[in-house]
Design a protein around this nucleic acid. Structure first.
Lengths: 209, 209
DNA sequence: GTCTATAAATAGATAGAC
DNA sequence: GTCTATCTATTTATAGAC
């Protein structure tokens, strides 16, 4: 049998963990396969035993991220909750999946910066489904006369971009605070999520005008 | 005299333009000095004639970006406008400087992703001043009993992150639209700026609760 | 100021032993 | 499954001619 046993999967998992950290810290081009191997307490050849290439390794990490978000968001959209509650959970779900993966926010930010250079068809599908689920939640609220119609892309950007910004800047904000910047210090995840939930609902309920 | 004449400055400027585009597209680690030289219609040696290193070249671009934002924002904070108008102009100023430099949003997003790895003391100073100016605008509004007090960092993140997201995703959004995503198509800069101005003021004026 | 040529280091990927 | 050794290509940086 060629299927990996427990010990094999363990080293494969170590590679994935090490690679996620490396891609997050240095980006795709800056990531070093040899360093990934050392972090995983293995050698370079093992990476090419488990994965076809540096690119394939990266895609696996990318699709785990976007796949996890899609799963959560589609489930929320199909649930029997009311539209307001769905929006709150939508925000919390993205925050939750990002917080569960320290590499998520940096990799997400870099992909946006590259214009989605490494985004393959599978990833495009995930993003399409996430935006589709969001659209259906908004539609449901509009039909129930509780929401105003908003552009899903503008709405989504207003939520996910600040979220990724805050998760990714934890270290930088500390540094800025030491450099004399006001109010850059620690803000809790809960505060930011609550704030963005409120902001999201205020937009949908037309409280801005 | 060793000061460059017109022709010299022209090639220096071409290097800076080419480098900005390269760093934006591929990130610091991914940027290739030889490709920068070719884009600038020069050769690699000329880059090391005008700049001490790849890192020095990058810092010059970074500090031009953050310096421009600081100049604008400090001027707005010190102007005799009312606090609401200052907030509107604050949002528009960041959008304006970003739009004037196509490399600005991608480089900004990448720096956030790296936790400000390439941010030197000069850059930290710029960011500190920008947050300081924002804080003074908020304080002014609070004293005039027009604004509620908000955390400047949370507030700033809610504005600049969506702005950079939208500028950086122009190409990607078209691709997602072709891939079947709803509402991902073209949204104008004016719309996004107006939306974020409204969102900013709604927060400060306590319209969210 | 601008070029060619090259040094010196680094990195993705593979061969082949165990 | 795991390793060492190595090939090959790329890349930052510099020497030196014009």
């Amino acid at each position: 049998m060629s299927r990996p046993r427990a010990a094999d999967s363990a080293s494969r998992a170590r590679i994935l963990r090490a690679a996620a950290a490396e891609f997050a810290a240095r980006g795709y081009a800056g990531a070093n396969v040899d360093r990934i191997a050392r972090t995983a307490r293995l050698n370079k050849a093992m990476i090419y035993y488990h994965f076809t290439s540096k690119a394939a390794l990266y895609h696996e990490i990318l699709n785990d991220m976007f796949g996890a978000v899609r799963r959560q968001v589609v489930e929320i959209a199909q649930s029997p909750l009311n539209p307001q509650e769905k929006v709150r959970r939508y925000v919390a779900a993205i925050a939750g999946e990002a917080e569960a993966r320290p590499h998520f926010p940096p990799i997400w930010l870099r992909e946006i910066a590259e214009g989605g250079e490494h985004i393959d068809k599978a990833t495009v599908g995930y993003v399409r489904d996430v935006l589709g689920a969001l659209s259906s939640i908004i539609d449901e609220g509009v039909r129930a006369a509780r929401f105003h119609r908003v552009n899903p892309m503008v709405f989504q950007g207003g939520i996910i971009a600040p979220l990724m910004f805050f998760f990714a800047t934890t270290g930088l904000r500390r540094r800025l605070a030491r450099g004399g910047a006001t109010g850059a210090a620690d803000i809790s995840t809960g505060e930011v999520v609550a704030h963005l939930q409120q902001l999201a609902l205020a937009q949908l309920e037309g409280k801005l005008t």
